[in-house]
Write a protein that binds this DNA or RNA. Structure first.
Lengths: 137, 137
DNA sequence: CATGAGAGCTTGCATTTTGCAAGTGAAAAC
DNA sequence: GTTTTCACTTGCAAAATGCAAGCTCTCATG
């Protein structure tokens, strides 16, 4: 089955990626799963930046369609679902890491995170592995 | 002088970055400068994806305010301006590279770029250096 | 020095996306 | 069996985007 292509798709790899997460919220949802270990709708909704509920629902559906996110019924709780990252989603770890390092270098207000970012920089491979495994928080 | 903070800024480095380029077009403009060597408004307007002129003007202003892009009068042509990337802008090279590699791994339609992406992967440091120097195209 | 053709925007307006608040349905908890 | 809780959906106002047209300033040409 062929994925529907956006009108912006030029064949450029950067454009393909922006087609999937080139908006205000998608990468933050992915970050909440990869870094904070968020697994339910409620946890994602309570993220640091305050996404609104309709946007979260829409983004989760789009990310699921794009093969980034999985959704499954929680076997222990019939009214809850468990969201997770696919391999494709976990593979975004290096992107998140480079973005965070860039911000650390250039955001003058980022001093609170300096220690954290220094650790990432000192052990990028390990950080990436732990992020993929969902062991960061 | 203090930069104005968006209402989304949570202190997270990823959120800081998305505040600057978390939209459909900003990263494509940066890519056109970093990878294609675009230097004028007209060259940027003629990019692969077809940005509209009012959006391009607005993004260039925002990116300039964010310290990513510089704008100077063209000394050789009074009716033209020369745009360029600051150090902060060139530092986005690793982000662009990771995004491109991710797309190469996961976009089934990316076969046309495979050779190019393989070369990036084989010599990431060199690619990054050439991108920073504006020597990629 | 008038004329015309770029280059680099700005403006107006229709369409789309977003944000906020309130509401819904089904499953737990009490 | 009534009330909470979870995961959404819906309605509507506000903001962002896309498209086309226009505007200004500069340079080249006759």
């Amino acid at each position: 089955m062929t994925q529907s292509r956006s009108k912006y798709d030029s064949g450029c790899p950067v454009a393909y990626a922006l087609d999937i997460f080139g908006d205000r919220w998608s990468l933050l949802v992915i970050r909440d799963m990869a870094v904070k270990g968020a697994r339910t709708y409620g946890e994602l909704l309570a993220g640091w930046e305050g996404i609104s509920t309709n946007i979260l629902a829409q983004r989760l559906k789009q990310l699921e369609e794009a093969g980034i996110v999985t959704k499954a019924k929680d076997p222990d709780n019939g009214r809850s679902y468990v969201y997770g990252l696919t391999e494709k989603g976990r593979d975004l770890a290096p992107v998140l890491i480079e973005i965070a390092l860039w911000s650390g270098r250039h955001n003058p207000a980022a001093h609170a995170m300096t220690g954290f970012l220094d650790k990432i920089e000192a052990d990028r491979t390990g950080t990436e592995a732990r992020m993929r495994a969902g062991e960061l928080p």
